[in-house]
Design a protein around this nucleic acid. Structure first.
Length: 464
DNA sequence: GTAGCTCTTAGTCGT
DNA sequence: ACGACTCCAGAGCTAC
């Protein structure tokens, strides 16, 4: 790299640091002023300008009072009132407040935010239409595949799907149509129908089912009309796209940081809750039926071994990534089959497609690759994972075989790690104008890689 | 164990 | 191109 670019980078960094210290000083003043005015029982003069997408993002310890009644509870037919415009600043409570207040069933339209022509009617048709067709292993056939030379980012595959920072991104398992789901820190869940084509809007549909960051989305490969979402608000909601509902199926006082379906059985959902608890939710009884205290701090990811669904990998802020055998975890003294000790928080631990490797990502600036006969060999690859305050942490994911890992690069690139060569190659594009943080690889389209950013954008790289 | 403090630093929009 | 604005997350440390 030219030293000019390096200097420019350094200059920007220092400038940001200086600006932040000024910001903090002014924040301190604002807070003191607010405290003073509160003590004088006068409203603060600092009122933020109204914006449709700036709702409260912090979970309140007490759920707010229900101030909006659904059409259903008022005994009205569902198509009685039109959808509000996204820019509508009417005094009715925002969709996110509805989600925060309601612990029971929600109609999807009650938490609907925006879509083409301010309607989400088309979205149901997209999903039902696509899920009816086979989602076979399209694109998996063919010869050797090197993503470093095969992936391209077309300008039409850049989408602004949400406002604010994205924490989770997933593909629907369709072979014929590309649909992506994302969750952000405001509690919004957005869907991008990439093949939307001509018409009103851009194929983006947004709902607000949570009142705090959406930490996980799970779309089971066998029933893609059912979308599970979890959040820091302690709720797990099940969106049934066919029934157009967004029901709460589990609630906790503690934040939920991760979810994962059991791969061979649709009835079980695993969740990481609070300070290190792994729980198993059983659909048939509608509640948590097993619980293990596995970590000292939050569990950031849960991932099942692709061949042996008794094996599960967890990553935790306590610095450990572990492989567990679900048949033999004792709750009083859980013992992992294998673990990787990082020096700082571990943000992901994912099994490779064949199950031969486990890849871990830690903010100690390393990516761990656990392999060998019995996961006995650990290779650490240096990687800058200092994402700072505004970005979601990096998590290395596997592509379509055991050859490559993908993760974010602070220089607005996708880093591709070759397992065999132990090299890191950045993928760059003029269309990628922000840093990709969270990734998803399409389960049946080789080369389709979705990258989500802190500004709510998605970059969809595709195989050329 | 936990409250409190410190440190990090990107994206968007308007000019 | 550049400056103003957003802003309170998450981790790690220290003191109690």
């Amino acid at each position: 790299m030219a030293s000019g670019a390096q200097n420019d980078y350094e200059r920007r960094r220092l400038e940001n640091i200086r600006r932040n210290s000024e910001m903090m000083a002014s924040l301190l003043l604002q807070r003191k002023a607010a405290d003073l005015s509160a003590s004088l029982k006068r409203p603060s003069s600092k009122t933020p300008k109204p914006s449709p997408d700036r709702k409260k993002s912090r979970p309140s310890p007490q759920p707010p009072i229900v101030i909006r009644r659904s059409l259903r509870t008022r005994g009205l037919p569902p198509d009685q009132s039109p959808h509000p415009e996204p820019s509508d600043v009417a005094p009715s409570p925002p969709a996110s407040d509805v989600a925060a207040a309601r612990r029971g069933p929600l109609l999807a339209r009650e938490v609907f935010f925006q879509g083409p022509g301010s309607s989400d009617l088309g979205f149901k048709d997209v999903i039902l239409g696509a899920s009816g067709r086979p989602s076979s292993d399209l694109g998996k056939e063919g010869g050797p595949f090197d993503p470093r030379s095969s992936l391209v980012l077309r300008p039409e595959n850049v989408g602004k799907v949400l406002s604010e920072r994205i924490l989770t991104v997933k593909f629907f398992p369709f072979g014929d149509r590309t649909v992506i789901a994302v969750g952000n820190k405001l509690g919004h869940v957005g869907f991008w129908d990439v093949d939307y084509g001509e018409g009103d809007g851009d194929g983006v549909y947004v709902y607000a089912p949570h009142s705090a960051p959406v930490s996980g989305i799970s779309i089971h490969p066998f029933s893609p009309t059912k979308v599970f979402t979890c959040g820091y608000d302690g709720f797990i909601r099940l969106m049934d796209i066919g029934k157009e509902t967004f029901n709460m199926i589990y609630s906790s006082d503690a934040p939920i940081y991760s979810i994962c379906p059991q791969p061979n059985d649709n009835n079980y959902l695993y969740l990481g809750e609070g300070s290190g608890e792994l729980k198993m939710w059983d659909q048939r009884v509608g509640k948590v039926s097993s619980s293990w205290d596995l970590h000292e701090q939050r569990i950031n990811t849960i991932d099942f071994h692709p061949e042996n669904s008794n094996l599960v990998a967890t990553s935790s802020t306590d610095g450990m990534a572990c492989i567990w055998d679900l048949r033999s975890i004792k709750n009083d003294r859980p013992e992992s089959l294998k673990n990787v000790q990082h020096r700082r928080a571990v943000h992901s631990a994912y099994f490779s497609p064949s199950g031969s490797f486990l890849a871990t990502t830690s903010i100690d600036d390393s990516v761990g690759i656990l392999g060998g006969n019995n996961f006995d060999d650990l290779t650490l690859i240096r990687h800058n994972n200092q994402t700072g305050r505004w970005l979601s942490s990096f998590r290395a994911i596997w592509g379509w075989d055991d050859s490559y890992l993908f993760l974010g690069n602070m220089r607005r690139a996708v880093d591709v790690i070759s397992i065999k060569e132990k090299t890191t190659t950045p993928l760059e594009s003029e269309h990628m104008t922000s840093i990709p943080c969270r990734f998803a690889a399409h389960s049946c389209k080789r080369g389709s890689l979705a990258c989500a950013t802190a500004g709510g954008k998605i970059y969809l790289w595709t195989g050329s």
